[in-house]
């Protein structure tokens, strides 16, 4: 019923070689390049003021974008999984949109809207509000590329679970808020956590969209990935890979947390979460 042993080992060999070449070698390269100048140089490049300010900005942007998209994901999932209404499938398509749009275009749309020559540019500059080449633009671009993650995890699960639990709670006299907090949230907590983990990783690591709106002002509008780019283009490879290694650690932590959530929730392999 199964393949001959040589076929089996050939397929395993091809898989391991491909994954090794494309995943493990680049991952090891990040850490090896970061430590090329020794441990001292590694930490010196991490406590550089520009690096610290990039880390601070990345944390700030993530702290705004992730909760905003968490709230959006919950509202959108409640709406789509609990009600049948006109335009529901259009809404679902809209939620998937950022996955189909190039990150560069995600940034571009905000420049066209809020940039100096954009639709609202003249009005904004007259009122001394700066969005593009400033923190608000970076937050907006990050929100755009990360808003599907939580909603995409919650919608299929809540559709599958159905609304019997909530209807039972309603008939027992629970208020809307009580139903949400006591019934819905506990039912979806693992999927919610899963979505937040993915959303967080993308928010901290987004490069293309943020690059378009940031303006690359050192110490002011540089997030960690942008700081990596600047250092790299200045041929300061050790520092670039040192900051990159922090992001690689974040990626490994994300993969670890993801596996743990999958194990705890008993969901096993997840196809939908991949995208």
């Amino acid at each position: 019923m199964t393949e001959p042993a040589w076929v089996r080992w050939l397929l395993i060999g091809v898989s391991v070689a491909f994954l090794g070449l494309f995943l493990i070698v680049p991952l090891v390269a990040v850490f090896s390049e970061a430590l090329r100048g020794g441990v001292g140089a590694y930490f010196t490049s991490l406590i550089d003021p520009a690096a610290l300010s990039a880390i601070r900005l990345t944390l700030l942007v993530t702290a705004i974008a992730v909760p905003a998209n968490l709230a959006f994901g919950l509202a959108a999932a409640w709406l789509i999984a609990r009600f049948d209404f006109v335009g529901r499938s259009v809404l679902l398509t809209l939620i998937d949109l950022p996955f189909a749009v190039s990150p560069v275009i995600s940034g571009l749309i905000y420049v066209l809207l809020f940039g100096l020559q954009g639709w609202l540019g003249p009005w904004l500059s007259a009122h001394n509000v700066q969005i593009i080449f400033a923190v608000p633009g970076i937050v907006l671009a990050t929100v755009f590329v990360t808003f599907p993650y939580v909603a995409r995890e919650l919608i299929p699960l809540m559709q599958e679970q159905g609304s019997e639990d909530e209807q039972a709670a309603l008939s027992l006299g629970a208020s809307g808020w009580q139903i949400f907090r006591r019934v819905t949230l506990p039912n979806v907590k693992w999927a919610l956590l899963y979505g937040v983990i993915l959303c967080n990783a993308r928010a901290m690591g987004e490069f293309g969209a943020v690059s378009v709106v940031s303006g690359h002002i050192r110490g002011e509008t540089n997030t960690m990935p942008l700081h990596v780019e600047i250092l790299y283009n200045e041929y300061n490879f050790v520092a670039a890979f040192a900051v990159a290694s922090l992001l690689a650690l974040l990626a490994l932590a994300t993969l670890g947390a993801k596996s743990l959530v999958e194990r705890f929730s008993g969901a096993g392999q997840r196809g939908g979460g991949a995208a």
Partner: peptide, 20 residues
């Protein structure tokens, strides 16, 4: 678990690693 690395690793990091 590592298969998802390209999703989790920021693209700028993948870019400089592959280049190196």
């Amino acid at each position: 678990a590592l298969v998802d690395l390209p999703f989790a690793l920021p693209t700028a990091v993948s870019g400089i690693a592959l280049t190196a």
